[in-house]
Amino acid sequence: MKKFFLFSIGQKYLMGVTGLGLAFFVLAHMLGNLLIFAGDKAYNLYMHQMVNMKASVIVQTGLLTAFLLHIILALILGVKNYFSRSEKYARQASGWKATAWYQKTLIAQGAVILVFVILHLITFKFGAHYEVVYEGKTVRNLFQLVIEVFQKPVMVIWYLIALLILFVHLFHGLSSSFQSLGLSHPRFDSWIKKLSLGYAVFVTVGYISLPIYVFFFV
């Protein structure tokens, strides 16, 4: 199997699988976040349960592995792709033959998302530790931290930018994963495109609703 992953097709398989895994994570994380609308108790208890469940270590290890693999493969493929064209064109393709900007900038998008994830972890996971007591049980008051963070306009704008970049990354990445995994058929090709767009819109709108809600309505 070693040789399989030395070839770009094999690497793209792994890229697709890790990408789909991460795409599933962002959906699950977004749905959990929506509990903010149910109030501080529901939100804080859910987050407490997530962090303290038995499978937490396994999920976090899996996530970190998928994330690192996705980044390492992107760099390996990126270097290979860069050197496959020694002399650049003087003019860029235009019209129908052009490559969309969001497909040319996937690595840059990934870099922004990486920076975002690191800052996001610093802000929330390793951020200010407030506590609250519900029925005699002390849990971390993440709700309060979220409210605090998203009352700063700078944070709201930064989250909006990062999330829009996540949107374009997801939009290309999802349908592209299926293609890399060899899953393409006249019967469901158009559905893959539509589902990728729908998924990316759903996830992004879900995430964006949080800072917007906190900033304008809390």
Binding site: K12, N81, F83, S180
Partner: peptide, 18 residues
């Protein structure tokens, strides 16, 4: 294909359009 030094596929679809 790999040996010849071609790049990998990013599924942009520009090839099919050109």
């Amino acid at each position: 294909m790999e040996k010849e030094g071609f790049g990998a596929c990013t599924n942009t679809g520009a090839c099919s359009r050109a």
